[in-house]
């Protein structure tokens, strides 16, 4: 994060450097960006103050009602609650798995680490729809997960995971854990690779065992990476759309309904455009706040 900043004190460039013509370089990219992202964002803020069904010519100004509804409407509140649950699966669990895993791998310098990195990072490059198709199969009543459970004698646990009111949200969450753990581990490994070996030697001379070594040396050194990992995974949890669309479409009932899916559902299925854009804007603000807070904490910890 700190890398983007800095470079202060380089001054404003030597005299005589062509400056105004510089805008010509900026213009084409900025125009496309402004037309297809900035302008729609402004329009979203505007849409969110109206009630409109998306088809008729008339719309009603309702002020902030679409926003207050997010707090008032039980299903909407629940969908943000589901996003919180997903954050646990997307962000907390991968970190809890990735930290010890990366520590062990970094300590032992085992052979085949490069190949391991390639394999665990692979989910990141595969389209979420493909991943969803694969996991739907694993979760199916006759799928791989239930086969595995029956194999170890846990027949009573076998079920259609994605159709189960109690388990569907966690089942979607586990896909997120699977998806993010590789990314988090690789990120932490690259951070740990930069820790100078002398730090470990000093800790060992002080008589530190592996556990104290982890808390005294490794953990403080990768705080920056942890902040980055949390930012990425929390945002991914909030933006879960493809996965829910393909695996559960919010069901059974509304047990896997999440804000991103509500945006799509309300705007294009229910004809409730104002509410949909209000959720979209809220989602943006929440993402903004979360990344700012996490990065502030990460910066303070590293400085």
């Amino acid at each position: 994060m700190a890398r983007a900043r800095g470079g202060a004190g380089r001054g404003s460039g030597p005299p005589g450097e062509p400056r105004l013509s510089g805008y010509l370089y900026l213009l084409p990219g900025f125009l496309v960006y402004a037309a297809f992202l900035l302008y729609p964002l402004g329009r979203a803020a505007q849409f969110s103050l109206y009630e409109w069904d998306g088809a008729s010519a008339e719309s009603t100004f309702v002020g902030l009602r679409n926003y207050s509804e997010i707090l008032g409407d039980a299903t909407l509140r629940a969908s943000f609650g589901h996003a919180l649950v997903l954050m646990f699966f997307y962000a907390v669990l991968p970190l809890l798995i990735g930290l010890p895993l990366a520590t062990i791998l970094n300590r032992a310098k085992v052979r085949g680490l490069g190949f391991f990195r390639t394999v665990v990072f692979l989910p990141q490059v595969i389209a979420m729809v493909v991943i969803a198709v694969a996991w739907r199969r694993l979760y199916a009543p006759e799928g791989g997960l239930n086969d595995a459970l029956r194999l170890v004698g846990l027949d009573s646990l076998a079920r259609g995971w994605l159709g189960d009111y109690t388990w569907a949200l966690s089942a979607v969450g586990v896909i997120g854990t699977w998806f993010e753990t590789g990314l988090v581990t690789v990120l932490l490994l690259s951070g740990m690779g930069r820790i100078p070996g002398e730090l470990y030697e000093a800790a060992r001379l002080d008589g530190a065992g592996p556990v104290r070594e982890f808390f005294a040396v490794t953990l403080p050194s990768v705080r920056g990476e942890i902040a980055v990992a949390l930012t990425l995974t929390v945002i991914a949890a909030l933006r879960t759309f493809d996965l829910v669309y393909v695996t559960t479409t919010g069901g059974p009932g509304t047990s896997t309904m999440v804000p991103s899916f509500e945006v799509y559902n309300r705007a294009f299925e229910q004809g409730n455009v104002g509410s949909a854009t209000a959720i979209g804007v809220t989602l943006t603000v929440v993402i903004f706040l979360i990344s700012t807070v996490i990065n502030r904490i990460g910066d303070r910890a590293t400085s």
């Binding site: 460039g13 979203a44 849409f47 979209g280 993402i287």
Partner: peptide, 29 residues
């Protein structure tokens, strides 16, 4: 080239990196 106003413009671009598609897809459509 560091055109005048480069920093605020840069922050505008940063906004676009963080903004989820869900925020703009409805009015855009």
């Amino acid at each position: 080239l560091r055109v005048p106003g480069a920093t605020p413009v840069f922050y505008l671009f940063l906004l676009g990196i963080m903004m989820p598609s869900e925020a703009i897809i409805v009015p855009l459509y």
